[in-house]
Amino acid sequence: MEIWLLWTLIKCARLPPPPPDLEKGVSRQRGKGKGIPIPANSKSSPIFFDRKQCGAVVNLDRLLHAESYSRSEATKAKYAVLESLYFPHDNSEAALRPFTSPLIAFAAMLCLERKGTAIYAPIFLFPPKIAKLQFSVRLTGFHMMLVDLHRYLGLTEDQKKTQEPWFE
């Protein structure tokens, strides 16, 4: 699921940004005589990135395509993407308009049926996907906490493996 999410984000970051009207939620007012009508079937990016998220995704894309590939740098970039995605600095916009959150937009895209004639997948298939995303969020949060704790305790690489008082 993490690979799926990251690869989708990378592909979306290469696309032109979504229309500003769509980002402002004008499409919600379509049909009510308010705002500017948004043409349906847009082929722009369905995922809205803030500045930090966009920078992290572009950086990961650049590192993955670099000729002098560094696995450690790419791993750090991957964590940076997930942290900016799961724990954004400012979540107020997503609270007002949920689909401005990349994670929510990706989850909404997972509702689409990829085979057959049905538009949406059965709802019974969706909770496992949400569970995987939730597990990924928790795992990333745990990693963030661990990194901060190591930094706070000032542990070296060797000490990290041996001196971990909060571990059993």
């Binding site: 690979i3 799926w4 499409s27 082929k43 689909f99 895209m109 997972l110 509702c111 990829r114």
Partner: peptide, 24 residues
């Protein structure tokens, strides 16, 4: 119905192409 409205603003094949992941 917000999901339907959000997804309705984009081309379905376009979204599916973004979601596609090659066989690893």
């Amino acid at each position: 119905t917000s999901i339907e409205r959000f997804l309705g603003d984009f081309d379905r094949q376009h979204l599916l192409s973004l979601l596609s992941l090659p066989f690893l």
